[in-house]
Design a binder for these strands. Structure first.
Lengths: 208, 208
DNA sequence: CCTTACATACCGACCGGTCTGTATGTTACA
DNA sequence: TGTAACATACAGACCGGTCGGTATGTAAGG
């Protein structure tokens, strides 16, 4: 069978490999994930793997990018995006995060960017820069809404939207880490709620 | 040369190995750190290593414990401990964290507990539990001061000291991660400052 | 239409190197 | 002389990456 593919998409098999890489590396990290593991998960053998990727590093980059772009698309399509009031988008984002951690008890799978950041920041400048770049986009995206909300509702408030967005990212990443070792994601939910309270305080909001 | 050692202390060479393990694993993580690397850093060879540790896992546990106990001692001896008012201890702790990240620009070395938590939570239950345990102690320690500060200064405030301490830990750990990829620790300082503002808000404090 | 030529997708054996752990010295000191 | 504290050498497993081969498809030409 031949796979006619629109130019932007990946071939089916390559996508399977990337998905397998994302899944395994999210759990075990980069070093503990074997090329053979990925092949096994994707249902093919090493020959096939190296047909699509020239090295293990290569699929790590692809997995990282794929993971981030998937999340970026999710957030781009999330319902809170369509809200007219930037303040609603700010708090709607927090709701969305809480929803996407899944049901109570069941532990959240981690963030591949965070995993790579911790494991590879000192050993792979390229991956570190990629993580930094993706993090910056998340911060930039959120701080955009924050700046608008501030302008519209609390123009006299004195806070830096970018700094607040960085706090948000740190809370999310740190909470994911704590959730992993506690084997429970309540801590993420609770911390988001406290961040919400902090935001209400910053913006002088009493409802929401 | 024989090293007479008080019963609680480690033999000189063993301590050197643990120190080397802490140093290298903080940077590279567990999997990317080789026994030979540790030996090289400590200035001896494999024979010596396996004289003191029965496996690589073994030194990882020792390194984790040693790292935590060292930090615990630092915090136990920190100046903010001696302050009589629990509120001063709460905010004094934040100052102490900021001080201990070192001078501007120079990037902070990470937290070994955080590194292990991210890398090994899904593959080594024992290490995961150890990380969870150490994190719990940090949270317990801070929430103790928080509870006292609340009782003494804002008994009508409505917040859970343990939840706030967990937020603090998540912020610190998340910020350390962001600092690693940004190659700058300003983000940690800024986020601590925002947490301080949140605390002031919770406790109804205007000075400090 | 059939054949030749070539491309894609994948298999699985294998190689070289690395890494953990072991087995066996060797040395210094009690 | 026995034992603690190492060094040295090596075994054995594993892992990343290569390579030759195969199956399938496709396009061109006579």
């Amino acid at each position: 069978m031949l796979h006619r593919i629109a130019s932007t998409e990946l071939p089916e098999t390559k996508r399977k490999l990337v998905d397998a890489g994302v899944k395994l590396m999210r759990e075990r990290g980069y070093n503990a994930t074997t090329v053979d593991d990925i092949c096994g998960e994707a249902g093919l053998t090493k020959g096939g793997f190296f047909h699509y990727f020239k090295s293990k590093d290569d699929i790590a980059r692809a997995a990282l990018t794929h993971f981030h772009e998937g999340k970026a698309r999710d957030y781009e399509a999330a319902p809170f995006r369509k809200l007219a009031d930037p303040l609603d988008r700010v708090f709607g984002r927090l709701d969305y995060v809480k929803e996407s951690v899944g049901p109570k008890g069941r532990v959240t799978k981690g963030c591949l960017i965070g995993v790579f950041a911790q494991e590879l920041a000192f050993t792979s400048p390229e991956i570190r820069d990629a993580c930094h770049n993706f993090f910056s986009r998340i911060v930039g995206d959120f701080s955009h809404d924050l700046a608008e909300a501030k302008a519209a509702h609390a123009s006299d408030a004195k806070f830096d939207p970018k700094a607040v967005a960085e706090l948000y990212l740190a809370i999310v990443q740190g909470s994911l880490m704590l959730a992993k070792v506690a084997d429970a994601n309540e801590v993420l939910r609770d911390n988001i709620e406290q961040f919400r309270a902090y935001l209400r305080f910053l913006l002088g909001v009493t409802d929401k």
